[in-house]
């Protein structure tokens, strides 16, 4: 008898949605300024009503994204304090097993082994995604807020910070967009083993087969716990 396992709670799924919807809007309203001569981005910007509109939309979407991120920080903090799992139980912090998994996976890719690495709740790929967003949020939101109020920030920060913010906002946006449409989309859409899409972002559950294949260590642990509580 196969059973569904919860991977993401409703709150976690909503946090993801409130992250990627603003992300798409921010890309569509930001890149027309990064590439002011591109016809493609001109088309996108005109469709959104021109630069006067996209500037407002960009800031609104940014506010939603920052609030979502702030909520996530509080959410993680609350869980750590209230429910008292150790940080290790969250399986988010990279550890030695990830290093081992990378080597195992590379061997598997190159036919040096036929054993896929056995992942726990989050593989090193997923941890990379998580911490990439974490770093990206600080760079993008930090520089974005400085560029939103440059005159204000220049009152207590050196002028070079505004210039750095301008470069950082533009360049980190490029990195984020590339990482999402190439790396993240490969892992959740274009990977032929996943195609057309990994539905866990809205379903929230994985089947037993999926668990067996993608997160065998976690499945083992869940089953052991069920045995123990019987």
């Amino acid at each position: 008898m196969s059973q569904d396992y919860t991977r993401f709670t409703l709150s976690q799924r909503l946090q993801h949605i409130f992250m990627f919807v603003p992300f798409i809007i921010l890309v569509l309203t930001g890149f027309p300024i990064k590439f002011p001569e591109s016809e493609f981005w001109n088309f996108v910007m005109s469709a959104a009503g021109g630069i006067e509109n996209t500037r407002i939309i960009h800031r609104f979407a940014a506010a939603v994204m920052i609030l979502d991120f702030a909520f996530h920080i509080l959410y993680v903090g609350y869980n750590l304090i209230k429910k008292r799992p150790s940080l290790a139980d969250m399986h988010l912090v990279p550890n030695g097993r990830d290093g081992k998994n990378i080597i195992e996976n590379l061997k598997y890719f190159m036919f040096l082994s036929d054993e896929r690495p056995r992942f726990h709740k989050f593989s090193y790929l997923e941890k990379f995604d998580y911490w990439a967003v974490f770093w990206g949020m600080f760079i993008m939101a930090g520089s974005g807020i400085i560029l939103w109020f440059p005159v204000l920030f220049s009152k207590f920060l050196p002028g070079i910070v505004i210039q750095i913010a301008y470069i950082a906002h533009s360049d980190e946006a490029m990195l984020a967009l590339l990482a999402i449409i190439i790396w993240h989309f490969y892992n959740v859409h274009f990977n032929p083993r996943i195609w057309p899409a990994n539905k866990v972002w809205y379903k929230g559950t994985l089947s037993e087969e999926e668990m067996e294949h993608e997160h065998p260590l976690e499945l083992e642990e869940i089953k052991a716990r069920e045995e123990a509580s019987k």
Partner: peptide
């Protein structure tokens, strides 16, 4: 700072591309 971002982006994307390429190769 500017070059740092260029190297960071190129380096990260090179590693991620390599991973995707190898993964697809195995399939």
């Amino acid at each position: 700072v500017e070059w740092g971002f260029i190297i960071l982006t190129a380096g990260t994307m090179a590693l991620l591309f390599a991973h995707i390429f190898l993964d697809f190769g195995r399939w």
